[in-house]
Structures are given as structure tokens and as C-alpha cells.
Simulated scan of single mutants.
Amino acid sequence: MSPAGPDDTPDTFGERLHGAFGRFGRLCVGIDPHSWLLTDWNLPDNADGAESFGRQVVAAAAGRAGIIKPQVAFFERFGSAGYLALERVLADARAAGLLVIADVKRGDLGTSVEAYGQAWLSQGSPLEVDAITVNPYMGVGSLASTVELAADARKGLFFLAATSNREAADLQQAILGHGAHAGRSVAASVLDEVGAINADRASGGSLGSVGVVLGATVSLPDFGIDITAPAAAVLTPVLAPGFGHQGANPADLASLFGGYAQGVIVSESRSVLSAGPARVADEITRRVTEAGATRG
């Protein structure tokens, strides 16, 4: 994880992401200490077990993959001890030079969402990461302060847009009846607004620092997203869960994401983690190799 401060880090998140693609390909290793995975790894289902699990995955990913994604909920379930465990996992990731996307899905208003951003994106915070997932369903504009903070700190954001859970489809596919995005689906309007943010903040890099979450197991046209649209000058990055265990294949990136394919982060968790502690490093290497054709 690169330092955040403008005086310390010349690269934006988008530039660092592009660099990770070039060095290691597009694989993002999830760190999800489910109860059953801790049991399979012969670890206790408590904060100590989650910490050991997370730190072992970081060690296995270092030098093999460029990106990790801790699912914060699996640490938060252990309360303050879980957050301390997560802080130690993140410290290891920083030391290893991994790009870290925290899956926190924060969304709120005013000073509340500003405080969430400060917790995860401020340089020196114990929870400092390179990017976080955010929930825009109080309006993309409700996250304006977090967008500003991320830009100032050269960090990244990923807005939920078209997720793979069935419960989201009615909302995300709904057509807006008025406003600037009338006639567009909710998912497409999020993508439109994120694209506009990247265009406004273009810094010469080919990959923006603000991205979207698009499930790899859904049909994006069903969500009103035109994947044949010509690529923008600054490409919006896509965090794409659904590869591996859930069935999506990195070889299908072009057909799944069309013009957005070159910015896709291939996120895998269970398909890698279920290999167990003795084999997880080899599994990461294998999955990186399988996704080799998707390198930037």
C-alpha cells in the first residue's frame, strides 16, 4: 500500500492500479475469514484466528498478486478486537506494498460520511487503505466529501452500481423518471456520474481513481449498461466480484464487460482461500497465471 500524502506519493490510485495490473495482472485476492474457513485452516473462530488468517493471506499474496480486498464485516463481527486484528493485517499489507481495497460499503450524509472517509483514507490512520467500496443509494452526490478526500489523498473509491445479489436487481435496474438521468437505469446513472468524476479529475493517467462495482455474474445490459460504448479517455475501473467459485471466468472479460474490460479487477475469494494455508500461495500463483491474458 502506497503512502497517501500528496507530498509523498506522486501517483494517483488509478496510476497505482494500472501499475499493479502491469506487474501482477488483474487478480484481487479477497480476505474473508468466514467461520468455516477459519475451521478449515485450523484457526479459532475469534479475532486471533481472523488476524492469523489475514496475515497468512497477505504473506501468500505478497510478490504474487498486486491487490487484496479484506471484507471488513468478517473482522467487525469480533468487535474492537476484530478491528485491532484488521489493523495488523493492513499494516502487513502496507509493508508488503500491496494495493488494498477495503470492502466496507460505506454510505451516509454530511459529516458522517466524511468521518467514514477519514477513517479509511487518511494518511496515518490505523485503518488506512488505498481504496474503499461505497454505497451511493442516498445519491452519488451524498458522497461528495469522500470523493474530495480521496482525490486529495490520492486514494480510490468503488461505487456499487450493478451487484450480483438478486435482491438488488429491482432497484438497480429501475428507470429514473426525472432529473439529469431521466430514462437511464439507476445502475447506469451511477456509472455515468462516476465517469464524469473521472473526466473532471483527469491527471494524465489512462485509468481513473473512482470506479464502480459490477458483478461478473450478471448481464450488464439487463441493468441498462451499454458495454459496447466506446472507451472514455479516462477509463473507469471496475471491481468485479463473481470470478472463481461463483462461476465467472477471466477469459470472458471482453464478452462480460466490453469496453470496460481493460479496467476490470478480477476479484476472487473462496476459490483461492479454500486451498488452505499450505497451498494458498500456490493457488494465488495459479489464478494469476490463468488471468495472465487480462494483464494491462
Score class of each variant (00 low, 15 high):
residue 2 S to R: 07
residue 3 P to S: 10
residue 3 P to T: 14
residue 5 G to L: 15
residue 8 D to A: 15
residue 10 P to E: 02
residue 14 G to P: 00
residue 16 R to W: 01
residue 17 L to E: 02
residue 21 F to E: 14
residue 21 F to Q: 13
residue 23 R to D: 11
residue 26 R to C: 07
residue 27 L to W: 02
residue 33 P to R: 08
residue 33 P to C: 11
residue 35 S to R: 15
residue 36 W to Q: 14
residue 37 L to P: 04
residue 39 T to M: 08
residue 40 D to W: 07
residue 44 P to C: 12
residue 47 A to D: 02
residue 55 R to C: 13
residue 59 A to T: 14
residue 61 A to C: 10
residue 62 A to S: 14
residue 62 A to C: 09
residue 64 R to F: 06
residue 65 A to H: 02
residue 66 G to S: 09
residue 66 G to W: 05
residue 68 I to W: 09
residue 69 K to A: 11
residue 69 K to R: 11
residue 70 P to H: 01
residue 73 A to C: 07
residue 74 F to H: 10
residue 74 F to Y: 13
residue 76 E to L: 13
residue 78 F to L: 12
residue 79 G to K: 12
residue 80 S to E: 12
residue 88 R to W: 06
residue 89 V to S: 15
residue 90 L to Q: 07
residue 91 A to F: 10
residue 93 A to G: 09
residue 95 A to L: 01
residue 96 A to D: 03
residue 97 G to C: 10
residue 98 L to S: 12
residue 99 L to M: 07
residue 100 V to T: 15
residue 103 D to H: 05
residue 104 V to R: 12
residue 105 K to R: 11
residue 107 G to D: 07
residue 111 T to R: 09
residue 114 E to R: 13
residue 116 Y to L: 12
residue 123 Q to T: 11
residue 125 S to F: 02
residue 130 D to W: 05
residue 131 A to K: 01
residue 132 I to V: 13
residue 140 V to Q: 08
residue 142 S to A: 14
residue 144 A to H: 05
residue 144 A to I: 01
residue 146 T to K: 04
residue 147 V to M: 10
residue 148 E to R: 15
residue 149 L to W: 03
residue 150 A to L: 13
residue 151 A to G: 11
residue 152 D to G: 02
residue 159 F to G: 13
residue 159 F to A: 07
residue 160 L to C: 06
residue 161 A to P: 11
residue 164 S to I: 00
residue 167 E to W: 06
residue 168 A to K: 00
residue 168 A to L: 00
residue 169 A to T: 11
residue 173 Q to P: 09
residue 174 A to F: 06
residue 175 I to V: 15
residue 175 I to P: 06
residue 176 L to V: 04
residue 176 L to Q: 13
residue 177 G to N: 06
residue 178 H to Q: 05
residue 178 H to L: 04
residue 180 A to Y: 00
residue 181 H to A: 15
residue 182 A to L: 00
residue 185 S to D: 15
residue 186 V to E: 06
residue 187 A to I: 13
residue 188 A to F: 15
residue 192 D to A: 15
residue 192 D to F: 08
residue 196 A to P: 04
residue 196 A to G: 10
residue 198 N to P: 10
residue 199 A to Y: 03
residue 199 A to P: 06
residue 199 A to H: 05
residue 201 R to D: 10
residue 203 S to C: 09
residue 204 G to K: 03
residue 205 G to D: 13
residue 208 G to R: 07
residue 210 V to L: 13
residue 210 V to A: 12
residue 214 L to Y: 04
residue 217 T to S: 07
residue 218 V to W: 00
residue 219 S to E: 13
residue 225 I to D: 10
residue 226 D to R: 07
residue 227 I to D: 02
residue 228 T to P: 03
residue 230 P to K: 08
residue 230 P to M: 09
residue 231 A to L: 05
residue 232 A to C: 10
residue 232 A to W: 07
residue 233 A to P: 03
residue 234 V to C: 06
residue 235 L to Y: 05
residue 238 V to T: 03
residue 238 V to A: 02
residue 241 P to I: 09
residue 244 G to W: 02
residue 245 H to V: 00
residue 246 Q to Y: 02
residue 248 A to Q: 01
residue 251 A to R: 13
residue 255 S to K: 14
residue 261 A to T: 10
residue 262 Q to Y: 03
residue 267 S to I: 05
residue 269 S to E: 08
residue 270 R to H: 12
residue 276 G to D: 11
residue 279 R to T: 04
residue 280 V to M: 11
residue 281 A to I: 14
residue 281 A to S: 15
residue 281 A to L: 13
residue 284 I to H: 14
residue 284 I to G: 10
residue 285 T to N: 14
residue 289 T to G: 04
residue 291 A to G: 04
residue 293 A to Q: 09
residue 294 T to K: 02
